[in-house]
Design a protein around this nucleic acid. Structure first.
Lengths: 247, 247
DNA sequence: GCCGGATACCTAACGCTGTTAGAGAACAAC
DNA sequence: GTTGTTCTCTAACAGCGTTAGGTATCCGGC
């Protein structure tokens, strides 16, 4: 006696389930995402999910894949006249926006990226765009991940700051809490820039960091690194860019 | 009848517990870190831990704080003659190294940074160093986090790739798996740089990204941004650095 | 029409988790 | 030696991911 309102066949699939799981994420966050609750939302018992997915880890992977697909759906190469930096910034922003759409989205996404043909399509697109901008593909392949890492790192912290893991008003990220904790005598500079440090405008902060990373990438453009017209040492960051970081 | 081998008094403290928890992390990872197992390691029953810590979340916070302290212990300003970029790179590298010392260390650390006086001491140090390098403190405060975000983002992915969450030989990060998945007809550039994409040398990859970020920061140095000797448009990234990323 | 296998779902249960209540030992102060 | 505080214990709760095994449903072959 299947009380199941709908016809038997192909109702559930890893994708359907992952989609429902992303919905569930926005209530209760990652902690509230349990197989039983997810099953309830799909009008099914928890054990059923294991017919479609090996385990929860696989569910999380599917969710991450879905997020990625959502982020890059319809993305093509730069429009005519569009700078590669604008294009890359838009791509990173799309990814961030998608992660932000889901509570704990960045944590779900982090470290689960590679995989499907969608991934390779986008990487191909990136490599082609950077190649057109003058980067050798090998060079581009070693450089572009920094953009992804920054984006994920930033968004993870942003969502952590939203602090829904903490009970009401106890989040250690409240600006006031910091304002009390920093002694202006010992840490005058910190005290002077508390506003900047805890500024709530995450969008602007992200864009700023993006600009930094993209400027850094631009500085790695081979042509840029050996512009003949520039007198040696004219670029102020010349030595330090070449210098290897201390290990 | 306290079978407890050691004297009664101040044995346990949040710090002791967190330290043991970090040790436990290296066996079993984040999933293996359970209150019961942690208690066992401290010769105590699980409930006891709740006398010292409100809940597991607080334990994780304490662990993150401990990692941060371990990372920046003894850190001072740049040595005489040391470039601010070298100094910053060394700092980021220290943080990464510490996170790598513990399984899932980056995931534990991510989004739990701010808090203690140690944090503010280090931020003060960063601000002072950048100030000496020519950055206004407000500007520095808005810029330096990008370094942290990159470092955390990179290391999270690195540790995810180590793939100890997956059963033997099933990690989706195995290079061979990718080599099979990418069709050289559709994705020629990707196929050509698989070696670079899945290159195992994480240290070099991190250093490369660090160089990029630092170069980007250097490009944001006000003085650098308007070096009078440079003819307008000589720096190839001129326009694009100014351009705001698409939203 | 009916059968057999595959597919999709179920119930029931396992061992484990974080967490709490409340009893009781150990210690310090008087 | 009593009292109060600090710490640890036992016992239990509800909920977790996951598995074994049964059952309904669908579909192609006769």
């Amino acid at each position: 006696m299947a009380e199941n309102g709908s016809r038997g066949g192909r109702r559930l699939s890893p994708e359907t389930i992952a989609r429902a799981a992303l919905g569930l994420l926005n209530e209760g966050g990652l902690d509230g995402l349990t197989m039983r609750e997810l099953a309830k939302r799909l009008d099914v018992r928890a054990a059923t999910l294991y017919w479609h997915l090996r385990n929860k880890r696989e569910l999380l992977d599917a969710m991450a894949a879905l997020m990625f697909e959502e982020a890059v759906a319809g993305v093509e190469g730069p429009r005519r006249g569009e700078d590669w930096q604008e294009w890359a910034a838009a791509l990173a922003t799309r990814l961030r926006r998608t992660m932000l759409r889901y509570r704990d989205g960045a944590r779900v996404f982090a470290g689960t990226s590679v995989g499907g043909p969608t991934t390779f399509r986008v990487i191909e697109l990136i490599l082609r765009t950077l190649q057109d901008a003058g980067y050798a593909p090998e060079r581009a392949a070693r450089l572009f991940p920094v953009l992804l890492h920054y984006t994920v790192g930033f968004t993870i912290e942003e969502q952590a700051r939203q602090g829904l893991d903490y009970p009401e008003g106890e989040s250690p990220y409240e600006p006031d809490r910091a304002r009390d904790a920093v002694d202006p005598g010992r840490f005058p500079l910190v005290a002077g820039v508390l506003g900047e440090l805890f500024d709530g405008d995450a969008d602007a902060g992200f864009a700023r960091g993006l600009r930094v990373v993209l400027a850094g990438l631009a500085a790695e453009l081979p042509e840029a690194a050996e512009l003949p017209e520039l007198p040696e040492g004219a670029r102020p960051d010349d030595a330090s860019v070449r210098g290897r970081p201390a290990t």
